[in-house]
């Protein structure tokens, strides 16, 4: 019997990976890393790590020549016995590195600096503001503004229009009928509520045919993000769309305009109501929101939005 230090180290590493995943799940930090729809994958990984740990502890105490015993089927990889000490040190440091940063450093929500790296592509800056101030649009706007009046008093009453919102059911999955119902609501209502669970499909629809929505009111929350060539009265109110994990985060949001835009700090979370206009950029119609009311909020518990998957029966 001999104690194999490297096998012990591997056992510890496997257990640490298991514990790291479990810790993320228990603390619900996992949503800061991956789309909650896919947590089952990492739960499976945690179970596999535990099984492998169980296998690995059998190898800690073994015969003197573990290599003979193990390698009778002629494998090519390193059993942790062959490489030079320096090489081993490096490879174990690499393996332990994510565990150290994972256990010791808090997860950080992506912010505007990442958005700036990725670019919001869909909402390009408006160079000349007067482009959108065309007469027919304005008159159209006045008509519909009257219709949405009751809703606009929302914030003045001190009522938080978002409080009654049901928490996002974690896997953003809905039945086909429910989805169609929600999309019909988008088509018909003059007051569009961009709830988290419909953010992505609504965003897609509105960007596909911005002219259809001119004059309608939109309610949404997001963080403030600016690009270099924005006017002082402009910013994007954006959210990160997470398909799988935060590495594939995509910035989606609407260009908004209002006079006090420059007073709002980047990365601040706002909830706003605004009316739609459109402007043209690169021969494409782009929606712009004129803010009617706004207030600062703290970062929501679920800062990200997820694409909708409709259940197929």
């Amino acid at each position: 019997m001999q104690f194999h230090f490297q096998q012990a180290l591997r056992a510890v590493t496997l257990f640490a990976f298991f514990l790291f995943l479990i810790k993320l799940h228990l603390g619900e930090e996992i949503t800061k890393y991956v789309n909650p729809k896919y947590v089952l994958f990492s739960q499976t990984a945690a179970v596999l790590f535990l099984c492998l740990f169980y296998v690995q502890i059998q190898r800690i105490w073994g015969k003197r020549h573990i290599h003979d015993h193990d390698c009778h089927h002629g494998c090519s990889h390193d059993h942790g016995e062959s490489a030079s000490p320096v090489k081993k040190m490096i490879s174990y440091s690499i393996l332990i590195f994510p565990l150290v940063t994972g256990f010791f450093l808090p997860a950080k929500t992506l912010d505007a600096s990442i958005a700036a790296k990725k670019g919001t592509l869909l909402t390009k800056p408006v160079k000349a503001q007067e482009q959108i101030e065309n007469e027919s649009e304005l008159s159209h706007l006045d008509e519909s503004a009257a219709e949405v009046e009751p809703n606009l008093s929302l914030y003045e009453n001190g009522e938080d229009g978002f409080d009654d919102q049901v928490p996002l059911p974690n896997p953003n999955e809905m039945a086909d009928e429910e989805y169609k119902e929600k999309m019909k609501q988008l088509d018909n209502s003059t007051m569009i509520d961009m709830k988290d669970n419909v953010f992505e499909p609504y965003y897609g629809e509105i960007n596909a045919e911005p002219h259809k929505y001119i004059g309608r009111t939109l309610k949404l929350k997001g963080f403030v993000y600016r690009e270099e060539d924005f006017q002082p009265n402009q910013f994007v109110l954006a959210r990160f769309l997470i398909t799988h994990c935060v590495a594939d985060a995509n910035v989606i949001g609407f260009l908004t305009e209002f006079d006090k835009a420059h007073t709002v700090k980047e990365n601040a979370w706002l909830e706003i109501e605004g009316t739609f206009h459109t402007t043209t950029y690169n021969n494409a119609e782009v929606p712009v929101l004129k803010i009617v009311s706004w207030k600062e909020i703290s970062e929501p518990a679920e800062p990200y939005v997820y694409p909708v998957f409709t259940r197929i029966k």
Binding site: L24, I30, Y33, V34, A45, P98, T101, A107, C245, A247
Partner: peptide, 8 residues
């Protein structure tokens, strides 16, 4: 965070 999320 991005690094760990890719790993996870």
């Amino acid at each position: 965070t991005i690094f760990l999320s890719i790993l996870i």
